[in-house]
Design a protein around this nucleic acid. Sequence first.
DNA 1: ATGGCGAGTGTGACTCGA
Length: 260
Amino acid sequence: MRVATFNINGIKARAEALTSWLDEASPDVVVLQEIKSVDEGFPRDLFEDRGYTVETHGQKSFNGVAILSKLPLEDVTRGLPGDDADEQARWIEGTVIGDQGAVRVCGLYLPNGNPAPGPKYDYKLGWMERMRARAAELLAMEEPALMAGDYNIIPQAEDAAKPDAWREDALFLLSSRDAYRRILNLGFTEAFRTRHPEPGHYSFWDYQAGAWQRNNGIRIDHILMTPQCADLMTDTGIEKEVRGRDKPSDHVPVWVDLDL
DNA sequence: ATGGCGAGTGTGACTCGA
């Protein structure tokens, strides 16, 4: 079973790029971020025609997450627990039933947080505290589960082409990395870094200033797995070349293969 | 990490993103 995450930066603008990638890569499960659409406006036919079950958690203009699954998808929940007043659509969960067992899949779009300091940065750190609570619950179940998405966190200097340029940015501030580390250190395994310890792998290149052409990227899309899930991992990768296609997202897909 | 972009909203020029 292949599970991928992809921040598509707008489902309407990315219909062609996303469907052509799905047709070629054919992942079993994809979590999407920044669909930038209400649920009623999501072009679900595009994906149902390709055999995917579609579950969305959208809002007008911004944010919005979704799960596409070719395998049975059960017990879908929307929203990150812990703040009933939070109206930003950034979290969705579902249980995917594979041939050998099930995995709980959480799709997330973690707040950017800029400018820092400020209310947006406070929201980011508060959101990460709530995510840590949910992550602890997932670990306590002692079953295969993963949290995949756009974390808006550069975990270490080797995850940026120019780390010095990000020192004061909400994606790389020490307090941001601390908050990420507190979640990871509960007992999760980050899929990509376990298999690819060397620097120079990125999942985002800005549209501006020739960032793609200069390979001025950052690695901010991650898949964190519970121990029971990590035991099932057979491979993981980043689909870098997708960034060089027509009308691309500024992010590329990141995936993990599970023996399920 | 800005000279340089792009999407959404909604038709002007703004907000938002990373």
